[in-house]
Design a protein around this nucleic acid. Structure first.
Ligand SMILES: [Mg+2]
Ligand SMILES: [Mg+2]
Length: 592
DNA sequence: TACATACAC
DNA sequence: TATGGTGTATGTA
């Protein structure tokens, strides 16, 4: 067990908190981890930032200790029912495991874009106040992205700082995306330097170029390519085109492939075979912090319960079931079984905003000037994306790093500079008054949410006449959708019900969907019941005719519903088809 | 609905 | 001297 989290006397917990991005251990480091930790701690000590981190860390320690106490009580109990509920969940998850997909996670080493002469010298991109990335020579010293440059220099006095050149990185990223597009038109880029590709269909029989499908029934035979061959072909093309190296992970879902892509950095590939034994062995010893979605706080909490690996999660599943929220438990359980989330594409934007840090100011007129600039910038972004928003949020960070947000729902959606500026001024003035005109901030931000589109599209064009446009909250057909979102310009695939934002995208998608089989997806739909994406490219071809009959039956309500009573309280009943709701109820019933 | 917190990149 | 900006999800009241 990690003693650090139980002992706050020498600030070990805080030290670890300050050690951002350091969890990725550098193999041949100059300093030990403890040395790095102490240097950062000593340099930071006493600053406003440090003091705020201390407050937050103490709060999270308190919460963790409360949870540990609760755990002690639970451990003494006989949890027969809970155990069986969890076992059933596991059974269900295992039943739905999908090992048919080949998901590829890429990470491009963009820091290699800088001067080749600097390759062997410690170099970081960014400034004295903040770094974006660092080369491997610098990482050996403990220099990491998201670290202030001046602290990095304490770790590595000879560190060379290179100013960021965003357009340059974007240009290279765009080149790489052009390569990705050929292999998976629905690839997801997570940032400039990271992306996921689903190459399953490519392995089977289909290839795509510029949104046009090419069917190659004997693709894999003709080219004799394995998934690994495809990944290496992509990495090679990236290198030839950009001279950048890329590391990659290949596995059955995004969670696993992402973790894998981190193993052979830089310029390497790690393959996790698509079989249950290999996957279970892999996650058994996987450190929880490596799991996307587990950050420093959840790591600390779980460590407090003696949980450090995904194997520990599985071992303690009944305890976690009682201790964590439903959502968190389901998430953890899935990861401990090597399962990812259902894949979505084209998730709609939910907010758009802008924020800026500056030398702390306490003068309202100066703050209004900042708001003016940001309102203008936000209005520009909204125009570009054709959006308007109903809720305006003002974000303030005090000179002591305390965060506050103030929001209001407007009578109408807004998108112009004038509307944003005047409403943000009102929010700021109200806050000033609220604080008796004592307000000193180092950051201001504006955000619009509850977005809708300004323009409209003709829904009777092309394939759209077969689709439902927008979302009708009254309609049973859209039961799987979140009824709170009612914006226009959503195109819903009639086959798998996936949502798209443009006609082009859905037309392309439907082509895929028409050829999918009924194979299982990775795990089950998330709590929000967003529409899942089945494997779009698999073996069984479905004829055009059968698809349209499928379309028709899809809209018919089911009859002959059976009723099931909650086995715990026996008081509430559910429809047979509403298994998710029943499960959720049982969870709450057991927890209370 | 409003706000805070956690997380990714 | 000095610790980012953009966006999503979730818990709580
Ligand atoms: Mg993590
Ligand atoms: Mg990145």
């Amino acid at each position: 067990m990690d003693q650090n989290f139980h002992d706050t006397n020498d600030d070990n917990s805080l030290k670890r908190r300050l050690l951002i991005n350091q969890n990725k251990e550098s193999s041949n480091g100059i300093h030990t981890r403890e040395e790095i930790q102490n240097i950062i701690y000593e340099v930071s000590k006493g600053s406003k930032f440090f003091n705020n981190e201390k407050v937050k860390d103490d709060l999270s320690t308190e919460k963790m200790n409360a949870l540990i106490q609760k755990a002690e009580i639970i451990k003494g109990k006989d949890l027969v029912v809970e155990r069986s509920v969890v076992e059933n969940k596991i059974k269900e998850l295992k039943k739905n495991r999908n090992l048919d997909n080949f998901i590829d996670a890429f990470y491009a080493s963009v820091h290699e874009l800088e001067n080749p002469e600097l390759k062997d010298k410690p170099m970081a991109v960014g400034g004295e106040r903040m770094l974006c990335t660092a080369n491997y020579a610098a990482r050996r010293y403990g220099v990491r992205s998201a670290m202030p440059g001046y602290i990095a220099k304490k770790l590595c006095p000879e560190l060379i700082l290179i100013p960021v050149n965003f357009p340059k990185y974007e240009a290279f990223a765009s080149q790489i995306r052009q390569i990705f597009e050929v292999y998976d038109p629905n690839f997801q880029s997570m940032s400039l330097d990271e992306a996921y590709l689903n190459i399953t269909g490519l392995i089977n029989r289909i290839t795509v170029k510029k949104n046009i499908l090419f069917f190659n029934p004997d693709y894999s035979v003709k080219h004799n390519m394995s998934p690994v061959d495809v990944v290496n072909e992509i990495r090679n093309k990236i290198y030839l085109k950009t001279k950048l190296t890329a590391s990659a992970g290949l596995a059955a879902n995004r969670f696993l492939s992402k973790v894998c892509s981190d193993i052979n950095k830089p310029n390497g590939l790690y393959v996790l075979p698509n079989n249950v034994e290999a996957i279970m062995e892999f996650v058994h010893k996987l450190n929880i912090r490596k799991v996307p979605g587990i950050g420093r706080v959840l790591e600390k909490t779980l460590n407090g319960l003696d949980i450090t690996t995904c194997g520990d999660i599985l071992k303690n599943n009944v305890l976690l079931y009682k201790l964590m929220s439903n959502t968190t438990f389901n998430f953890l359980l899935k990861r401990s079984l090597g399962l990812g989330d259902v894949e979505f594409s084209d998730a709609e934007r939910k907010s758009i905003g802008v924020e800026r840090s500056f030398e702390p100011i306490d003068n309202m007129e100066l703050m209004i000037l900042k708001l003016e600039t940001m309102s203008s910038s936000l209005a520009e972004d909204l125009t570009e994306k054709n959006l308007k928003g109903l809720v305006l949020t003002l974000k303030l960070k005090s000179y002591e790093f305390k965060l506050t947000t103030r929001s209001k729902t407007l009578s109408n959606s807004i998108h112009t500079f004038e509307d944003i500026f005047s409403n943000s001024k009102q929010l700021l003035k109200a806050e000033f008054k609220e604080r008796n005109f004592n307000l000193k901030v180092r950051l201001l931000g504006l955000q619009l949410s509850k977005l809708s589109s300004v323009s409209t599209l003709n829904e009777n064009d092309g394939i759209l006449k077969y689709l439902k446009r927008g979302r009708d909250p009254e309609s049973e057909d859209y039961k799987c959708l979140d009824s709170t979102k009612r914006e226009a310009n959503k195109f819903i695939c009639p086959v798998c019900q996936e949502i798209f934002t443009t006609e082009l995208k859905i037309s392309s998608h439907i082509e895929f969907c028409l050829h999918k089989s009924s194979s299982a997806v990775d795990a089950f739909p998330s709590k929000k019941n967003k529409c899942h994406r089945t494997n779009p490219m698999t073996k069984d071809n479905i004829s055009q005719k059968s698809i349209f009959s499928f379309l028709e039956t899809k809209n018919k309500k089911k009859i002959d519903k059976k009723t099931i009573f909650c086995p715990i309280c026996n008081a509430i009943s559910f429809d047979e088809e509403n298994v998710a709701e029943l499960n959720s109820h049982i969870d709450n019933c057991l927890r209370s």
